[in-house]
């Protein structure tokens, strides 16, 4: 008998209630679109700046935009660090968006303040070429390895990017890659941690489909 047989039997019960999801509000700008996109894709959403609320959440979403150092400092000031680490350690579903993805890494060339080190690697700056920096455009995603977010998106889905720094592709990366002069990690799927460099809430139907994919996957783990 597999160890998780109870879970399997209990699945219909789990499916009935919506995924209780907390969108972390730590002063990282406008959360209106992000909140709305999670609501329309079926999450039972709470937007909160209160770390204690994270305890009851099935899933956490960490947005973020702007300067790495400022985002990291606001995040640390918000008091959410412990809750986020505990949530991820407990194997619960987690989604990071844009700089909310970048601060999960060890460090960034943009900042002397280190990241959370939940994902291994350093965030790098796009080199100076004839390409405009920041990358501010729609670009295509190509799945690498296994990613629950990259299911049923059709061939070459487009997502909306705004960034000057990127997570380098590593051997064995799971998620998606995107090409902007060089290949970088546009989606990270690492165990229970999912993250996107682009903004799903700004990526029209592809973005909404990826949020649905996150929910479908999160309901199963």
């Amino acid at each position: 008998m597999p160890q998780n047989w109870r879970l399997k039997l209990g699945q219909p019960r789990v499916m009935i209630r919506a995924m209780k999801t907390l969108l972390i509000d730590y002063g990282s700008g406008n959360l209106r679109s992000c909140a709305k996109s999670l609501e329309v894709t079926g999450f039972d959403l709470q937007v909160s700046s209160e770390p204690n609320d994270a305890i009851h959440a099935d899933a956490l979403v960490l947005p973020g935009q702007g300067h790495f150092r400022q985002v990291m400092e606001s995040f640390l000031d918000s008091g959410f660090e412990h809750a986020v680490r505990a949530h991820i350690q407990a194997g619960k579903p987690f989604l990071g968006i844009c700089v909310g993805m970048q601060i999960l890494f060890d460090s960034s060339e943009e900042s002397e303040v280190p990241g959370l080190g939940i994902l291994k690697g350093d965030i790098k700056k796009f080199p100076k070429t004839e390409l405009s920096v920041p990358q501010m455009q729609w670009n295509t995603l190509e799945a690498v390895g296994e990613s629950p977010l990259m299911q049923n998106l059709g061939s070459k889905p487009f997502a909306y990017f705004v960034h000057s720094y990127y997570a380098p592709l590593e051997l064995g990366s799971n998620g998606a890659k995107t090409d902007y002069g060089l290949g970088f990690l546009s989606v990270v799927s690492h165990e229970n941690v999912q993250a996107t460099q682009f903004h799903p809430e700004k990526s029209q139907k592809t973005g909404l489909k990826m949020l649905k994919n996150f929910r479908t996957w999160a309901e199963k783990i």
Partner: peptide
């Protein structure tokens, strides 16, 4: 603007 931002998911 609020209504627009809650209706379309684009930049």
């Amino acid at each position: 603007a609020r209504n627009v931002a809650e209706t379309v998911f684009m930049p």
